[in-house]
């Protein structure tokens, strides 16, 4: 079982100490973030990383791999620079996710959980990612690419493979690498929080309609600070 060189180990240990400190008296809670941290260093959960987590938290390696192999975000093979996850859960699949998936596998010549030879793209089928109103959806390193089509998808992966920056629909200005993403998921902010929009169109569609129709929650009309009293207006269902 390979282990880390002294420098990497020192860095890992310092980061791990920060992660563990978030869970006073309950270090084991740090395991999920630590596995993300390992991925940020190795690009996957390496056997050495398993050993590192076990040692840091006083667990057996069996206990650590038990956790590492339970969650789908933990990779057992070196991941590409970008995970391209096509949602093929029912809704996205029907709206076109299946077609996008077929297009991408053909275009890239790889299947599920496989990586292009240049190491740029790991293709993955993902489950519903809570963006159904933007279907069909693709996640690149867990950033949203909404309302995709086969051609937008191939353009996307081509850009990724060409090393061109790609811009999520709702997310950071550009997609950072898999390892950088994993470092964020380990709980280390990367300064991109203020980039991107607050919401996409579907998120706002109800709000826009309400504004247009001047619908509000009770007692709210014309009061930017909210209702003063419970003036029942409109909202209550009228029994037929």
């Amino acid at each position: 079982m390979a282990s880390y060189d002294a420098q990497t180990l020192a860095r890992l240990e310092a980061d791990a100490a920060q992660v563990v400190a978030r869970y006073p008296e309950h270090p084991r809670s740090a395991l999920l973030p630590l596995l993300h941290l390992v991925q940020s260093v190795d690009g996957y959960v390496s056997p050495a990383g398993i050993g590192f987590c076990a040692q840091t938290l006083g667990l057996s390696t069996a206990e650590v791999s038990a956790v590492a192999t339970f969650y789908t975000q933990y990779k057992r093979h070196p991941n590409g620079t970008y995970t391209v996850g096509v949602c093929t859960n029912t809704l996205c699949a029907v709206m076109g996710g299946d077609a996008i998936w077929a297009e991408l596998t053909e275009h890239l010549g790889i299947g599920n959980d496989e990586t292009t030879e240049d190491g740029a793209v790991t293709l993955e089928r993902v489950e519903c990612n809570a963006a159904c109103d933007y279907a069909p959806v693709i996640m690149v390193n867990w950033e949203f690419f909404d309302n995709q089509t086969p051609s937008s998808a191939t353009a996307l992966v081509d850009a990724l493979r060409a090393g061109e920056p790609v811009h999520p629909t709702r997310g950071a200005d550009r997609v950072v690498s898999f390892r950088e993403t994993e470092r964020v998921l380990a709980g280390f902010a990367d300064g991109h929080a203020n980039e991107g929009p607050g919401a996409g169109e579907p998120t706002l569609v109800g709000l826009r309609l309400a504004a247009e129709k001047r619908w509000t929650a009770p007692g709210e009309a014309g009061e930017p600070d909210g209702p003063a009293g419970a003036r029942k207006r409109g909202a209550k269902r009228e029994e037929a």
Partner: peptide
């Protein structure tokens, strides 16, 4: 070459 620690081996 070196022991990996109580948790691993």
């Amino acid at each position: 070459e070196r022991p990996v620690g109580p948790a691993a081996l």
